[in-house]
């Protein structure tokens, strides 16, 4: 296990180095000059030259990259051109909001996807199976920004059941202020016993989380269905039946247990897609998280912010897949951590 983690740490470091090199080069290749973006549209040539000197843009590329690397490692991720604040601070401020949204959405996606997949596999070729397959295809193929708008139209405009945007209602911060401990509003409200704010936070989470969960839930449902159909035809499932285990045990304990490893792998892969999904979802739902920050940064050609978010995304992705591999080995004893 230790050896495995060390080797993975080494390969992960290589991956991250590659990502940093790529983001760095992209920023240098794109014609829009960072100096111009920094000063503004009315930049004079002598200003540009001065700023380039200040920012070290007149140095050779490999020196620039080295400076970039060492700055990143020492926690200096540069200042955002848009907000003129340190990028790391900006990211730290928004990370909890995005993390909360992602965590809720992914948990919901796994739960809903697995249950739908198992039910579809058990009721193979019935109307219910067809309905579930239609739903999962829909979830996979509907773009997040459109699905988000659609849900808003239905649940906010037409039914008036859920709040439209944001993490909390406009009055909640004043009437039931949340004491920030973790930055995850639901957790903070729960820990401080602030039930009114908890309810409000949960209501605000439902629509964006559902929008974000649609794609991974669809993928997981389809994968679970296919694997479960395969598992239910296996010899050892027949053995379980022959020894008198109930159909419920056979399905949920024996067959699903064997179906989980491939489902886990696929789920890990969809996470990358979901990370970019937060960009759209947060903009549509005015969710004050990283995705919205990144979307703004993209529009403003805010290089430090873009590069910071990209590297953070890469770190997240590498970590998630490390976790997936460890979980995989736990789920299937034949898979070693080599």
């Amino acid at each position: 296990m230790i050896r495995f983690l060390m080797r993975r740490a080494a390969t992960s470091a290589l991956v991250l180095l590659g990502v940093m090199l790529a983001t760095f080069l992209l920023a240098r290749v794109v014609p829009a000059s960072p100096a111009v973006a920094y000063i503004g549209p009315k930049a004079q040539p002598e200003d540009i030259a001065r700023v380039e000197r200040e920012l070290g843009l007149d140095q050779p590329l490999h020196i620039q990259f080295w400076n970039y690397l060492t700055d990143m490692l020492t926690g200096d991720w540069g200042d955002s051109i848009g907000t003129k604040q340190p990028v790391l601070g900006e990211i730290g401020e928004r990370l909890p909001a995005t993390f909360e949204l992602l965590a809720v959405a992914m948990a919901a996606a796994v739960l809903v996807g697995v249950v739908l997949g198992v039910v579809a596999a058990r009721r193979k070729h019935t109307k219910l199976d067809h309905l579930i397959r239609l739903l999962s295809i829909g979830g996979v193929s509907m773009p997040a920004f459109w699905l988000g708008l659609l849900l808003q139209v239905v649940f906010v405009r037409a039914l008036g059941l859920l709040p439209p945007t944001g993490r909390l209602g406009p009055d909640t911060p004043f009437t039931y202020p949340i004491t920030e401990l973790t930055g995850l509003y639901t957790v903070d409200a729960l820990l401080t016993g602030n039930t009114a704010a908890l309810g409000d936070a949960v209501l605000h989470l439902i629509l964006p989380a559902a929008t974000l969960a649609a794609y991974p839930a669809g993928v997981v449902a389809r994968m679970t269905r296919a694997t479960m159909i395969e598992m239910l035809a296996q010899d050892h499932v027949r053995t379980a039946r022959a020894y008198g285990l109930s159909e419920r045990t056979v399905t949920w304990r024996v067959a699903l247990r064997g179906a989980l490893p491939p489902v886990t792998t696929v789920f890990g892969l969809t996470l990358a897609y979901s990370l970019t999904g937060t960009f759209f979802v947060e903009v549509v739902f005015n969710w004050p998280g990283l995705g919205q920050f990144a979307a703004q940064a993209l529009l403003n050609v805010d290089y430090p912010a873009i590069m910071g978010v990209t590297v953070l995304g890469a770190v997240g992705y590498v970590l998630v897949n490390l976790v997936v591999d460890v979980v995989q080995a736990r789920l299937d004893p034949r898979v070693g951590l080599a």
């Binding site: 010899d235 008198g244 034949r334």
Partner: peptide, 21 residues
């Protein structure tokens, strides 16, 4: 009756057991 009055010993012991338990 399954597992109470009658049980079966299968042909392929290699696949008749749950591989992940």
């Amino acid at each position: 009756v399954r597992g109470r009055k009658v049980t079966m010993v299968f042909q392929n012991p290699g696949t008749a057991f749950d591989p992940v338990t």
